[in-house]
Design a binder for these strands. Structure first.
Lengths: 157, 157
DNA sequence: TTTTTTGCAAAACCTTTGCAGTTGG
DNA sequence: CCAACTGCAAAGGTTTTGCAAAAAA
């Protein structure tokens, strides 16, 4: 599998940096953890635990519970984050040091991931009006993407 | 249980109107449907299927699968809508003709429900910047409420 | 009467957990 | 060596489904 088009920026940009971080935190770099990390590097966009268990590079499959425990560990280290895109399983991705934020189309499931700064205007407006500090990294903005909204306008349903 | 402080506005303002709507659509007003509706009227705010099954007015409990099927039916009629407030089960409420939109605190779980118009400014900004038509009725804006954000600022964690 | 809906039981789905055995450091 | 981790199996929580029996109209 080729490298992702939009591999995370800056910190933790390669496997070595992450493995160092894992060990510095007193953790061990076991086979499942390494393979989860490899699969996350290979993925382009957030993926489910199940996809990580089955879709890994080498043909073999990982034990699902180990995948979940690996992800939990990596998430505690700040290396990984997960997002809930509507229904369906949680999806995991490398943070690259900064948690991205997401917009998802509830009709076609397309995900738009943006750097945090890009939603600051929206965040400011929400805070100004409701006092609420919105975070769109763990739970995204859900609605219709431009294409589906146009389709909806032409053929309402 | 006393009536909710913010019972839904206008259409479907009482049980009779809803039961008429159910029958007009060719549906039957069975005992579970009636009891689900009663429990929804009695609730103040969105409630889980499980709460509807157990917490209903008269002591008895409803079959959970019947509750889900009743809610599905009422939702198809536009009388009920459900929202996913973070983790945990989906929560159901009467629409009163207009689906409210929600902001939820990911720390204290407090829900702020607003009429759709109140989020139009936010919606416009999102559409302008991303072409995305946000809807916060089915999946809310998640983040920290004012109180929790203040607590966070004083004692970061 | 007849079509819809229920009750129950079972399964599906995602995720977590207990525990004995394995392994990385 | 020994704490950390895995594999397996089982359970937990939410929602869906199949089907025969019940009930609304």
């Amino acid at each position: 599998v080729p490298h992702a088009p939009h591999t995370p920026p800056l910190p933790f940009s390669d496997l070595d940096e992450i493995t160092d971080a894992v060990r510095r935190a007193g953790g061990r770099l076991s086979a499942p953890r390494r393979r989860v990390l490899e699969a996350l590097f290979a993925a382009d966009g957030p993926v489910s635990a199940d996809a990580l268990a089955h879709g890994g590079a080498g043909g073999g499959t990982l034990e699902l519970s180990s995948v979940y425990r690996s992800l939990e560990h990596l998430e505690a280290l700040g290396v990984v984050a997960h997002v809930h895109l509507g229904h369906g399983p949680g999806l995991y991705a490398l943070t690259g040091g900064s948690a991205r934020e997401h917009l998802v189309c509830e009709r076609c499931d397309r995900v738009t991931s943006v750097d945090p700064g890009e939603l600051d205007g929206v965040r400011d407006l929400v805070r100004e009006r409701f006092g609420h500090h919105a975070r769109f990294s763990h739970f995204p903005i859900v609605g219709l993407c431009a294409a589906c909204a146009a389709a909806e306008r032409d053929a309402p349903g």
